[in-house]
Design a protein around this nucleic acid. Structure first.
Length: 729
RNA sequence: GCGCGAUUAGCUCAGUUGGUAGAGCAACUCAUUUACACUGAGAAGGUCGGGGGUUCAAGUCCCUCAUCGCGCACCA
């Protein structure tokens, strides 16, 4: 075909080719500097006194590559950001990655084991950490290139890492502040010990798995008056009491008595009978063998009744016992030995099959063993003098209750309250190597907490690191220059406008950010929380490697183009709802990108050498009607954008361009342009041209590449990049 | 055990304050080189999970049941 229309670029004569276009456009955006709000002001596309709009990117873990969930997050946030930028806000989207302490470390441990047959102790702390850093760097680089593929308009000049020097300083500063105010303390308490990962984990890092177990009912000895039940007979050598409900008449007469048992599986026990309301009458025999060292509830009961603690299981999930037969045995082996002994002695009364939830560690899969340990905690109940004597719990509840933080969809507010209200002290120390080292030093009995190591000799730093969520909690302000309270970014962009993330980290992260920000800065970290759901496969199943139903964002981008992938992740997906993804759906939006391409070809070829002219006012009646209709659609679109209803807007633009603009308006234009009067022709042509420009603008946040590429080809005077053009009103 | 969500066309989902059920995809019929085949036109497809209630009027509000999914707690 010969290109005989000089104002039509030759590339419009072929179908739209995302592969040829997208990387080139992204480079153009990057080189323009407009991702950086300072450059926008400098170059006059944003007013210097414009209102700020900021989002801090939830930092992806450097444990691998991005999946479709990340792609959805990046798309939603990019839509918010591009919209804000076009609306004239001083718009900052700050990117970063997360060191993800335990997740990254266990990943590298697995690789080390598989590829070299080595364990981390074979390398030593320093050498192992070097390996982790190389791995983290590679993951980081992959993630950055994937983000660029997705079209994310983040300000790379402000990129942060949760474990870099600045963030480490912020972490030390925050820790010291909390320590000095008595909110961080070191205590010997029952913690969740992961024998596989050899570290403590927080309550939230536990994953419950349903398994079949045996429920044994027995007596300690023939003379003992009360029968008890347990699924873990091996812990019973650590029992110090039997607790019953104060209102349980069956056992009243025994309460207060103490029994000496000379031989319970080769050891001695001293059992006191106590009454405690935590015991349920109807569960098991209604009597509970109290094992303070290996059960959270038992430890609480023991504290209330001043009972001793007797540890019988060590860090390797092996037994500690005076009985040689048990000592050093795995808990499962010890269980069998004890059950055999009970049978032999005629003490076992019943053995039932039950299903129980066992606690496993999220990252390693190890079975969690409750153990007494000396660890660091954040006290969530203590009144904070510097915050009107409110506790951290109250500080966390307040802004959500009074609406300073708005959670979308709002059913998550209840979930949040429920979690905060039942929150226990947060265990923040971890016995792993990759992470922020605890800024505490010891010398004999002395303890020092400070930003730097003490000058004198003989001090040794705590070998533990911090829970990764401690540094993540600071993320909204550690990225903006805190602890420098005069930092321009901190003053300009905090509190941030929106936190957009997956709902599954509401406790891990959202709650911890609210805790840190309200305590440290006395202000909320963000005004709106917008939760997106999980991206599932076409059948609604979770994507997983074992099911083989993973969709790699890069694969579908290669096949259909980024714009199509973005649209398919947005449309049909309300906040907080899981969405389903299939290649068919993506393909439909690839067709749409091409439709837009051809609409452009038609409009440009039928308007010859006319230029975009929003000031044109010689419209005929027909076009006046069409403009009214168009502006009504634009008005609704803007309203829904302000309400973050992107799934509705995306579909609305799609509908308007295809079903209305292409199928009806363009079709009838053919007749007008052929046989109309000169005035009618001109009126119609300007309508087509001007409306196409509006479509490109409102579609830009959703499909930034194809719209920017078409914008390139449009006859518009004094053109800037579409990404910094003004949103139509 | 407590709580949350979902249930609308074959599939994925909209449905704003109650006012005659709506889109995309798929399938079906027709058109056939068009700005675009990554196309157009058309037709078909639903007792809105069941039951009850409020109302002139219920997909929408209330009660109840069912199924599915999720969170939290318990797990002696």
């Amino acid at each position: 075909m010969i290109n005989d229309q000089p104002n039509i670029d030759a590339k419009l004569l072929k179908p739209y080719d995302p592969k040829e276009t997208e990387d080139r456009i992204y480079k153009m955006w990057e080189e323009s500097g407009f991702f950086n709000p300072d450059v926008c002001i400098e170059k006059g596309v944003t007013e210097s006194d414009a209102k700020p709009f900021s989002i801090i990117l939830p930092p992806p873990n450097v444990t691998g590559t991005l999946h479709l969930g990340h792609a959805a997050m990046l798309t939603i946030e990019d839509i918010m950001i591009r919209y804000a930028r076009m609306k004239g806000y001083r718009t900052l989207w700050l990117p970063g990655t997360d060191h993800a302490a335990i997740a990254t470390q266990s990943k590298v441990e697995k690789i080390l084991e598989k590829e070299e047959g080595k364990r981390k102790n074979d390398l030593g702390r320093e050498e192992f950490l070097k390996r982790v850093e190389v791995f983290a760097q590679n993951s980081h680089d992959t993630i950055v290139s994937q983000m660029k593929k997705m079209g994310t308009s983040v300000d790379w000049s402000r990129e942060a890492y949760t474990l870099d020097e600045k963030r480490n300083f912020a972490v030390r500063t925050a820790f010291k502040k909390m320590y000095d105010e008595g909110l961080i303390y070191r205590g010997n308490r029952i913690v969740n010990w992961d024998p596989k990962g050899q570290t403590v984990i927080s309550d939230d890092e536990i994953v419950y798995e349903e398994r079949k177990a045996k429920f044994y009912t027995f007596k300690y000895s023939k003379d003992f008056p009360i029968t008890i039940s347990t699924t873990r007979p091996e812990t019973k050598i650590g029992d110090v009491a039997v607790a019953v409900n104060p209102e349980d008449e069956r056992y009243q007469k025994y309460v207060g008595k103490t029994y000496e048992i000379d031989n319970f599986c080769g050891g001695k026990l001293t059992i006191k009978i106590i009454a405690d309301k935590a015991v349920e009458k109807d569960l098991g025999t209604g009597a509970l063998g109290v094992t303070p060292a290996h059960s959270q509830i038992d430890a609480e009961i023991a504290t209330r009744h001043n009972l001793p603690t007797k540890q019988v299981i060590n860090e390797y999930a092996k037994m500690i016992s005076t009985n040689e037969e048990l000592n050093g045995k795995k808990t499962t082996e010890a269980r069998e030995i004890i059950v055999e002994w009970l049978k032999k002695e005629g003490l076992l009364e019943k053995e039932e099959e039950v299903t129980q939830n066992i606690s496993t560690a999220e990252r390693t899969g190890g079975i969690v063993e409750p153990l007494p340990k000396l660890q660091w905690f954040i006290n969530v109940n203590k009144p904070v003098p510097s915050r009107d004597n409110k506790s951290l719990k109250e500080l966390m509840l307040e802004p959500v209750r009074n609406g300073k933080i708005n959670i979308t969809p709002n059913q998550f507010e209840k979930v949040y309250y429920n979690w905060v209200e039942n929150l226990r002290d947060w265990c923040i120390s971890r016995q792993i190597w990759y992470g922020h080292r605890i800024p505490v030093w010891y010398k004999g009995d002395e303890i020092y907490c400070g930003l730097e190591a003490p000058k004198e000799d003989g001090w040794e730093q705590d070998s533990d690191t911090l829970d990764t969520w401690f540094s993540s909690g600071l993320w909204t302000f550690s990225t903006l220059g805190w602890p420098d309270l005069n930092a321009t970014d901190l003053k300009t962009y905090h509190p941030t406008n929106v936190l957009e993330t997956a709902y599954d980290i509401i406790f891990f992260w959202v709650a911890r950010m609210i805790l840190m920000s309200t305590y440290i800065l006395g202000e909320v970290p963000f005004r709106t929380v917008y939760f997106h759901g999980l991206v599932r496969d076409a059948k609604g199943r979770k994507m997983s490697k074992s099911l083989g139903n993973m969709i790699d964002p890069l694969d579908v981008i290669e096949k259909f183009g980024t714009d199509a992938v973005r649209m398919s992740l947005i449309i049909g997906t309300g906040p907080g709802n899981d969405s389903k993804m299939s290649e068919d759906k993506i393909k439909a939006y690839k067709n749409y990108a091409n439709k837009l391409w051809n609409i452009t070809r038609f409009v440009l070829s039928s308007t010859e050498n006319l230029k975009y002219n929003p000031a044109f006012n010689q419209y005929k009646e027909k076009e006046i009607e069409l403009i009214k209709e168009r502006d009504e659609v634009l008005k609704i679109i803007t309203k829904e954008m302000d309400e973050n209803k992107f799934y509705l807007v995306g579909d609305k633009i799609y509908q308007y361009t295809w079903a209305r603009f292409a199928d009806v308006i363009i079709e009838e234009s053919k007749e007008i342009i052929l046989n109309g009067t000169d005035e009618e022709k001109l009126s119609r042509k300007y309508f087509l041209l001007n409306t196409l420009v509006d479509i490109l603008k409102v579609l830009h946040p959703f499909m930034p590449f194809v719209t920017e590429e078409i914008w390139n080809l449009m006859p518009v005077d004094n053109k800037k990049l579409l990404m910094v053009e003004k949103w139509p009103n």
